[in-house]
Amino acid sequence: MRSRVLPHPILSVVVAVVWVALANDLSAASLVFGIVLGIGVPLFTACYWPERPIVKRPLVMLEYAAVVAWDIVVSNIEVARLILFRRGSTLRSLFVTVPLELTTPEAVTVLTGTITMTPGTVSADLSADGRSVLVHCLDAGDPDAVVRQIKTRYERRLKEIFE
């Protein structure tokens, strides 16, 4: 059931929070105007958002964010070490194909974004049917380990959250 006043409650909250953050001011005036925008903007743009993304397990999202934040820090130190102390031509760079079990566009988008931000990997392309991701590794001794890490560490959690 979608309500007619609040077609996208999460979008409303995001718009209100972004307004308050832009004003950089926690006063009543900016809060009230943020809430007005949060109700108004989703109402007037409702026809551009026909569907609402489904988030089944919001709490797993927090765990996922913590895991990804930790991995971003670790991967940055790792990539910095590779850049500073290795000659570029000795890095074993290669492309690997990661088969996907995720099907919803939101989940695939979050997964490819995560792949780019974490250890030595950049997502380079999706297959035309959306069932595999092309991943470029900066320095991979074992391509299968990269695929396994992506699947167990990120994809499993995203499957819990979105599907």
Binding site: T97, P99, S127, D129
Partner: peptide
């Protein structure tokens, strides 16, 4: 030329 094959269809950029 160095791209591995995708599972069932080609890569989206080249299709």
């Amino acid at each position: 030329a160095t791209l591995p094959p995708a599972q069932t269809s080609g890569w989206a950029t080249l299709e």
